[in-house]
């Protein structure tokens, strides 16, 4: 069992290496250079050449690749080209925690609301309840986050004045309400839909009839018998959204004025800030690997049949 997860963890290394390589070459293949300024005063070609030389951008690409990989393996991703006073590590340390807090809160909200609402939609005998929950979850999946964020800011920030329209004062402040909810909406809708479907499948299985024949209370049947089994497919959906939500959303962070990782990543791409692009992409890849591993681990915890397979 432990060896299985060690193997899975080791298998993450080639994944990271492949991500590194792809991002490195795609970033460098993109037209433009870090020194292209968007301002009206472009840099002199001589200045650009000297900057290229300073940052070894005039070396052949494979040399740059090997040099950079060697640095990355030591944990050194170099300075950001956009803000040369900061290293990539500084930038990650500054911007990632904000996105992690926001994304973590959003995923927590999505799970804590998604499971009960999904169960309610599946179990309710009133078609209206199921219908309403399905409409909301369909909207949640189909509405782009920038629309949701804008609507929420206009409604609650501008209109009602309950929340600030822009800026970040920490997770436990009114400034986090709109971004957390905007981020949570898509995973919430997905969790509702997935859990509703799997509850509907589970509730007609034979062992639910057995549970009823035992004279168990309805809540016991729903939580211990239906819920435990229906949770297994829902975990996959939660896992898929978690890595995506945790690293932050460009739209939500830009619109709500959050100094987060998702926004910084997109700005870095636009500025051809190669070290930051590569560093942030690797962080994202790492998240995907670790969260997939956690999803597998939770299968292992939730489903004893998986446990026996690994024990063999």
């Amino acid at each position: 069992m432990l060896s299985y997860f060690c193997k899975r963890l080791l298998a993450g290394i080639p994944t990271l290496l492949i991500s590194f390589t792809l991002v490195f070459f795609i970033a460098h293949a993109t037209p433009g250079s870090p020194w292209d300024s968007s301002s009206n005063r472009p840099l002199e070609p001589a200045v650009k050449a000297r900057l290229d030389a300073k940052y070894h951008l005039d070396d052949p690409l494979y040399v740059q690749y090997v040099d950079y990989l060697a640095g990355a393996l030591r944990g050194d991703f170099g300075p950001s080209f956009r803000d040369r006073t900061k290293s990539v590590a500084d930038i990650v340390a500054q911007f990632l925690p904000v996105s992690l807090k926001l994304g973590g809160a959003a995923m927590l909200l999505a799970v804590l609301l998604g499971l009960p609402f999904g169960a309610l939609a599946a179990l309710s005998r009133h078609p209206a309840v199921d219908g309403a929950i399905r409409v909301i979850s369909t909207l949640g999946i189909s509405m782009p986050t920038y629309v949701v964020t804008s609507i929420l800011i206009v409604a609650f920030g501008v209109g009602l004045g309950w929340v600030p329209t822009f800026g970040w004062k920490g997770l436990f402040s009114a400034s986090s309400l709109v971004p957390v909810f905007s981020l949570a909406l898509a995973p919430l809708a997905a969790v509702i839909r997935c859990f509703r479907t799997s509850m509907l499948e589970v509730m007609n299985l034979d062992f639910i009839r057995t549970a009823r024949a035992k004279g168990l209370r309805p809540m016991t049947i729903i939580v211990h018998h239906m819920g435990r089994n229906a949770l297994i497919p829902a975990v996959t959906v939660v896992g898929a959204y978690t890595s995506y939500i945790l690293v932050g959303s460009f739209f939500v962070e830009s619109i709500a004025g959050i100094p987060g990782f998702g926004r910084y990543f997109v700005l870095a791409v636009a500025a051809r800030d190669y070290p930051v692009i590569i560093g942030t992409t690797l962080i994202y890849a790492l998240f995907v690997i670790v969260i997939n591993l956690i999803v597998d681990l939770s299968y292992y915890l939730l489903d004893p049949r998986v446990r026996t397979e690994h024990a063999r």
Binding site: F207, A211, A213, G215, L216, H225, R228, N229, L302, D303
Partner: peptide, 30 residues
């Protein structure tokens, strides 16, 4: 009455037990 005054067993034992709960738990909860 269910499970207390009247017990019931079903046709297919492979689907009538909850796959994710220990056998003992399933007896004990009754």
């Amino acid at each position: 009455v269910r499970g207390n005054e009247v017990g019931m067993i079903f046709q297919d034992p492979s689907t009538s037990l909850n796959p994710v709960l220990r056998v003992g738990r399933q007896v004990a909860e009754t």
